[in-house]
Simulated scan of single mutants.
Amino acid sequence: MTLTYLCTLPLPDAWFDELRSRMPEVDIHRMRPEDDPDADVLAQVDLLHTSEWLPHAADAPELKLVQLDTSGVDHVRGSSVWESGVAIATLGGIAPVPMAEYALMSILELAHRMPLIAGHRQARTWPSNSDRLAKLTPRSLPGATVGIVGYGRIGREISRLATAFGMQVLGVSRSGTRVVAGEKFDTGRQSIEGDLAELFPVERIDEVLRRSDYLVVVVPLTELTRGLIGQAQLDLLPPGACVVNIARGGIVDETALLERLRDGSLGGVALDVFDEEPLPSDSVWWTEPGALVTPHVAGLAPQYHAQTLDLVVENLTRLAENRPLLNEVDRAAGY
């Protein structure tokens, strides 16, 4: 079976050379999202490898799989391809390790008062000995509790690292159980069997919030999770708790988050995602004391090219052999 593959991503030539070497029977095509697609290619494409660009389903009648270059699918919902029922697969599994490292980096920076220290650096002021002791003494991580909202591959990797620091881990998922549905592409290091976290279904999230010294949000953005962490939920956190959001904008109420940071209810926040991206230059978050801000980089993977190639080759092979695909989206669940 000869498959036609179309890619809209700016991957290097060497990446496609390696794909041709590993899949010589595949007819490979490239295009830029801003260009008009070749109608003949689009009419016969079997696998579309893309990020945001999607054709109208009627223009790609042979399309069998959309391989997304993203872990989330919120930008795809409502498209004709989504409605058509064509299989959609995500990039999930490539970023658990760097995202977990980012989460722990954020927890460590917040625990060690780095936002305040960064303020002193920017102002070129050396704090007095009394201020150093009173305001810059780090919080202890051993014995602290981290709540992880969205407990899948990334959550398990965060749990592994947090446990190594002596932290207690609480995980929130839809079911509250250690179940991995379907076949997934995974470059993480944490197995289900080695997971020590205490798990809760999302209906019991309030219990987790009340116990979380650090709250890490990594749940997919769906209609059920939009606005999941609002003012009422933030008010349940212990005094001085810290919030880390590496999921998507729209899950955590940014207005409520800012209010609780400014009134001292929260001890700090780390935000890699926002309601509006790119974050406007006049956003208060850029200069807000107590906030760590990064430009949606937590999921950038050092081995991205090699891992993406492995995923594409595997799904092309499975498509040709009519086998279950890796990372196929569950439309009912929304991810």
Rank of each mutant, 00 (worst) to 15 (best):
Y214C: 11
R211D: 05
G166D: 10
D59P: 12
L309M: 05
D310V: 14
R113S: 04
Y304S: 13
E109I: 05
A14T: 15
V219S: 15
L104M: 11
I246F: 10
T90V: 03
E276T: 15
N327A: 10
F16I: 10
I246K: 00
T225E: 01
F16N: 08
V81N: 01
L258Y: 08
A320H: 01
G299V: 11
P280Y: 00
S159M: 02
V169C: 10
E321M: 08
R204T: 13
A247M: 04
R226T: 14
L237I: 05
L108Q: 06
V86A: 12
P302N: 04
L228V: 12
L136S: 12
A298K: 02
G92T: 06
P37V: 07
P98C: 01
L215M: 05
G155F: 00
G227M: 02
E328C: 08
V76Q: 06
D253F: 07
S212H: 03
L300G: 12
R132D: 11
K135F: 11
D13C: 08
I107K: 01
E52V: 13
Q122K: 12
D213I: 03
T163K: 05
A332T: 15
D74N: 11
L326S: 12
R22F: 09
G290S: 02
V45C: 02
L54N: 11
G152C: 03
P239K: 09
L116G: 14
R210K: 14
L319W: 05
S21Y: 04
L196C: 11
T255M: 12
P280A: 05
A162K: 00
T308D: 12
S281F: 03
E25C: 13
T4M: 00
Q231C: 10
T187R: 13
V293G: 02
V76F: 03
L224N: 13
M105L: 14
R139D: 15
N322M: 08
S140T: 14
N129C: 10
S80N: 13
R174T: 15
A162Y: 00
L3S: 08
G147K: 01
S175K: 00
H120T: 11
V202K: 09
D40N: 05
V216A: 07
L326N: 09
A232N: 13
P10C: 06
P127G: 03
H296C: 06
T317L: 09
A320L: 01
G171A: 06
S51V: 09
S51K: 11
G227I: 01
R210H: 07
V97G: 15
V293T: 04
W126T: 15
D275E: 01
A270H: 06
D330T: 08
R139W: 10
A247T: 13
R77V: 14
D40A: 14
P115F: 00
L292W: 00
E109S: 14
G152F: 04
L47R: 03
N327M: 05
K64N: 14
L316Y: 06
R178A: 15
G85S: 06
V297F: 03
L271E: 01
F165M: 13
D235V: 05
H120I: 12
G334A: 10
P127C: 01
D235P: 09
F185D: 14
E198N: 07
G230C: 05
G299L: 04
L319I: 14
L104R: 04
S283P: 04
A232C: 10
L104D: 13
F16P: 13
M167V: 10
D195C: 06
D272F: 02
L136Y: 03
V313N: 05
